[in-house]
Design a binder for these strands. Structure first.
Lengths: 248, 248
DNA sequence: TGACAAACTATGTCAGGACAAAGTGTTGAC
DNA sequence: GTCAACACTTTGTCCTGACATAGTTTGTCA
């Protein structure tokens, strides 16, 4: 029989506003990450599991599905549910450079080099799905990690959506400001490429002329499909690279 | 009352092995893409919709959830379900350069420059989670789009998993061969960067020395978390860039 | 002994019902 | 006229129950 790994009892709070299936999933995830449920082992079957935790099978299934989607478990009909190797877990997230630097323990600093409201260039208006000539807040920023310049960033945000203020931008990342205004970026289209630095770019970024730069242009939309941001960024290839976790 | 957009009747085949919820979702998706259900409009409520299509509410919900996850619909409790701007749809997919070229109508050609079984370098063994000294099939390929060289690709595949043959590789992309062998890449970790071409690389890729190159290193795993491939690729930045669609 | 069939196990799909919670609009009191 | 309380609509959560289907194991018969 083999049985399958024993999932420790969990305490569920049915009065909590946190959904039951989510409580179960979170608990399960913890136990997998802490090694209580070893990698490669099979879970008990859904029915027993649901029974022991005192939830219905659909709720149990939903919790498991949640972890399956995150790549922690795999299910095979007729066989069972197995814990997969914890190498890759989280799919690509929509983060900003600012967040990335914060997470990696660096201290990001931003110098605003340009800040104005002006009609969007046609190409940007099109990317944002705005009528030609619509006004956007146009920003040029230089981002430092420690004392070294890291990226030269150009962004455009429709003024109709958010009236950005220079002072706010000096303290927070653009994405934080967008989120704070309820404009949560949910989908984005990014193009990542490379090219050589022009003399002007090299001077700003403290590189030599012709140095390889990583380019990234992005349009971001909120959940309702409203374009919230256009960005065109230049990174010093010697100091930065993109890391992506893909699934499916 | 407003009502909400009318979803045309659909013909469901209950004898089909294709799940009901999937039939519903597919039909719905078609109608959205064809404009039968206009962007921005609200769907009828779940209960009516389920009723009219002759399915239960859970089934209807599952179909809708499927499209919500793909970014075509958004739901708001107490409000309804709305069709979002069809700009961004599919999240990042795990594809190969070969597939990408095929899809974009180019004719990819591959020249195999090196093909041997040998112990994996420590760094690659670690990336693949293999014991040091494990044998891999090591490949160097040059990929052309039309007559122009596009990318110089190095790959390593554990020999225990798949005994690659040079002839096969000449005809298909590596990912096709992996999939055919049941080693379906499901998760991957990619790092994208840039650097300047060395003299040797420039010669091979028909670029000048110092030209900007896009670099990509990737480890791919199958659903069970078994590492199936390591790749380290160099792209001509003048001819290629990565496009990503991110969600959430 | 070997191969095919049946039994068993586990996940996949589907139904129908009940109540909770969030958002919207309306009504009523002050 | 303004604001709060209430009703209503719609999605979110959770339950019980049932049958289908894929994979594995067991058992039987040739």
């Amino acid at each position: 029989m083999g049985g399958g790994a024993l999932v420790p009892d969990v305490t569920l709070d049915r009065t909590s506003p946190v959904p039951l299936y989510f409580q179960v999933a979170t608990r399960l995830q913890q136990q997998i990450e802490e090694g209580d449920i070893p990698v490669g082992s099979r879970l008990e079957n859904e029915v027993e599991l649901a029974d022991r935790l005192g939830v219905s099978r659909p709720t149990m299934r939903r919790a498991i599905s949640y972890l399956v989607e995150r790549g922690m478990l795999i299910r095979k009909r007729g066989v069972g549910t197995q814990v997969v190797h914890p190498k890759v877990r989280r799919p690509v997230e929509l983060t900003s450079l600012y967040d990335d630097l914060l997470k990696s323990g660096q201290s990001p600093r931003t110098e605003i080099r340009e800040f104005e409201v002006r009609p969007a260039p046609d190409q940007i208006a099109e990317a944002l799905g705005l009528p030609f000539g619509s006004e956007v807040t146009w920003i040029e920023r230089l981002r430092y990690a420690g004392d070294e310049p890291l990226a030269l960033m150009h962004n455009a945000v429709p003024v109709d959506l958010l009236r950005l203020r220079r002072e706010d931008l000096e303290r927070s990342g653009l994405y934080d400001l967008l989120r704070a205004a309820g404009l949560v970026p949910r989908m984005a289209n990014q193009v990542v490429g490379a090219r050589s630095a022009t003399a002007a770019e090299a001077r700003i970024l403290d590189e030599t002329r012709g140095a390889p730069l990583l380019t990234m242009t992005r349009t971001a939309w909120d959940a309702a499909g409203k374009a919230v941001e256009y960005g065109s960024h230049l990174y010093r290839a010697s100091r930065y690279s993109f890391e992506l976790n893909l699934t499916s």
